[in-house]
């Protein structure tokens, strides 16, 4: 048993952190048009991480994609990587996968009747697992950088792979961990530099213990996400329950981490100017899209208790 990243995986994480922090810094024009840098993602190989080498991909797996998703969450990357790689890729055949890896086609998928990024992707995996053109009305969401749409369905083209829900849930959970980690770091920075009563506020346990609680949440969430990632990558029979557990735990951990960080930041954390609310809104978006934590725990209960327990 070896539940640690390989040197190559650690390096991938480091590279992603460096590349994203340069292009998506905290000081950015948040309300302006966000450049997805899609062609650059293709060039980096991030769009084809799990696409076979003969289809122009890198030939790695879902664990590497989860590493990237965590970093994309940490940087609050705006584009539909989650939708294309996390939601749609598993349904696609080799030609479509090659087009994704090359950065030519962006995908999303219908999730409980809503299609994230409907207005900015090309194709959509619908609820039946068929391909649709991305057409339909777009609606604002809690996270202004992540609109969703109601897909106008036509006769779809069947896709070979089907919908991989554990994979999609784990991908969302990975983003949530990245968000939680980032707002924890912002909280630490503030608690270390902001002084009141002549001392940095981090000396006060009412403040520091909030951050310690977030730390414990983040580490436990991360463990569940990596477990689920491994199960999905290995087609392990525990993948569905692991992914449900990971999404329920990580989404709630991210929301709670943001709420504690806003509190630790005081009035500043409540301003539009400070980026914290952007993380908070994304965490809420991740918690709400697809199955909510209580529904996911219901699924876990079905798995561990059996569905026949009398009500």
């Amino acid at each position: 048993m070896d539940f640690a990243f390989t040197d190559e995986q650690v390096e991938l994480k480091r590279q992603a952190r460096a590349w994203l922090s340069e292009r998506y810094p905290l000081e950015r024009d948040w309300d302006g048009v966000q450049d997805y840098r899609w062609a650059e993602l293709a060039e980096l190989g991030w769009l084809g991480v799990s696409v076979a080498e003969e289809d122009g991909g890198v030939g790695l797996g879902f664990v590497e994609e989860v590493i990237l998703l965590e970093e994309l969450g940490y940087a609050l990357y705006p584009g539909p990587y989650l939708a294309t790689v996390g939601f749609a890729l598993a349904a696609l055949g080799p030609a479509d996968r090659a087009a994704v890896a090359a950065g030519r086609v962006k995908w999303s998928a219908e999730v409980n009747g809503l299609t994230p990024w409907l207005g900015s992707v090309d194709k959509v995996v619908d609820m039946d697992g068929s391909a649709q053109d991305a057409r339909g009305e777009e609606l604002p969401t809690v996270d202004p950088s992540r609109p969703v749409g109601r897909l106008e369905r036509t006769n779809g083209t069947p896709l070979p792979g089907g919908r991989d829900i554990p994979r999609a849930r784990t991908a969302m959970a990975a983003e949530a961990v990245g968000i939680a980690q980032r707002v924890l770091e912002l909280g630490i920075e503030h608690a270390t530099t902001r002084k009141q009563f002549g001392k940095p506020i981090g000396v006060y346990q009412a403040v520091s213990h909030q951050l310690a609680n977030t730390y414990a949440d983040v580490e436990l969430a991360r463990s569940l996400v990596y477990w689920a990632a491994w199960c999905v990558a290995e087609n392990d029979e525990q993948a569905p329950v692991a992914a449900a557990a990971a999404k329920a735990f990580a989404a709630e951990a991210a929301v709670a981490a943001c709420e504690r960080s806003i509190q630790v930041h005081g009035g500043t954390g409540f301003t539009w100017e400070h980026p914290l609310h952007r993380f908070y809104k994304r965490a809420l978006w991740l918690e709400g899209l697809g199955s909510r934590p209580s529904e996911l725990r219901g699924e876990v209960a079905d798995a561990v208790l059996g569905v026949t327990v009398q009500v």
């Binding site: 924890l184 630490i188 608690a191 270390t192 001392k199 940095p200 981090g202 000396v203 006060y204 346990q205 520091s208 213990h209 951050l211 310690a212 609680n213 730390y215 414990a216």
Partner: peptide, 14 residues
């Protein structure tokens, strides 16, 4: 929690 705050997160000592 103090140990996590001070030794892991690097917050100032209480």
């Amino acid at each position: 929690r103090n140990i996590v705050a001070e030794r892991v997160l690097g917050l100032p000592k209480s």
